[in-house]
C-alpha cells in the first residue's frame, strides 16, 4: 500500500499553482497541462488536453466540496505526474454539488503502467481530501511547503 511519503514524492513545487487564473473548465485544465508539459518537456500538449476533456465528458471529476480530480491516461506522457492548483475565486467545473471548484489535483499517467500505480495514487489523493479537516487545510495552504507537509503528515 502506498505510504503518505510515497504519495508526497509525486508533488513538486514546479507543478503547483496557487493562483490559478482560469475562469472555465477548459482554461483550468489548460493551465495545469502547461505546467506539466513544461516540467516534463512534453511536446504534445494538445493530446493531453483532449484526453482530459474527453474524460470530463465521461463524468465530471469535480466530486463536490470545492475539489476536482481531473485524471486520465495518455501516451503523450512518459511518467505519472500530479499537478496541484488552487483558485481563490473558484471555477465552474460542473461539480456534482453545483458549487465552484477551488482545488484541483490533476493526475495523468501513461497507459503502460503495469502496477496500476495511477489508480493507487488517485485513490490515495481522494482519500486524503474526503477528510473534511485535511481538505480545508489543503485548500487553505499558503504554499508548496505547507501542502507537502499536509500530505506527508496524513499517515495514510
Amino acid at each position: 500500500m502506498m505510504t503518505s511519503q510515497e504519495l508526497a514524492s509525486y508533488f513538486r513545487e514546479s507543478l503547483c499553482i496557487f493562483d490559478l487564473k482560469a475562469a472555465s473548465k477548459r482554461e483550468a485544465l489548460a493551465e495545469m497541462v502547461d505546467v506539466v508539459c513544461s516540467e516534463h518537456d512534453i511536446k504534445d500538449r494538445g493530446l493531453i488536453l483532449e484526453m482530459l476533456l474527453n474524460r470530463e465528458s465521461l463524468g465530471s471529476t469535480a466530486i463536490g466540496k470545492g475539489v476536482a480530480f481531473p485524471h486520465g491516461r495518455t501516451l503523450a506522457v512518459r511518467d505519472l505526474s500530479i499537478a496541484f492548483a488552487r483558485s481563490v475565486r473558484g471555477v465552474d467545473f460542473d461539480s456534482t454539488d453545483k458549487k465552484p471548484t477551488h482545488a484541483f489535483f490533476l493526475i495523468i499517467a501513461p497507459p503502460q503502467d503495469r502496477d496500476n500505480v495511477y489508480l493507487q495514487v488517485l485513490g490515495r489523493v481522494v482519500d486524503l481530501i474526503k477528510d473534511d479537516a485535511s481538505r480545508d487545510r489543503v485548500v487553505g495552504a499558503s504554499g508548496y511547503a505547507e501542502l507537502k507537509t499536509i500530505i506527508e503528515g496524513q499517515g495514510l
Binding site: N54, S57, L58, G59, T61, I63, F69, T96, G123, V126
Partner: peptide
C-alpha cells in the same frame, strides 16, 4: 472503483 471514489461514469455515449 471509480464510482466508489465518487466519480460519475455515465457519459460513455459521449466518448
Amino acid at each position: 472503483k471509480m464510482q466508489e471514489m465518487g466519480f460519475p461514469m455515465d457519459g460513455i455515449a459521449e466518448i
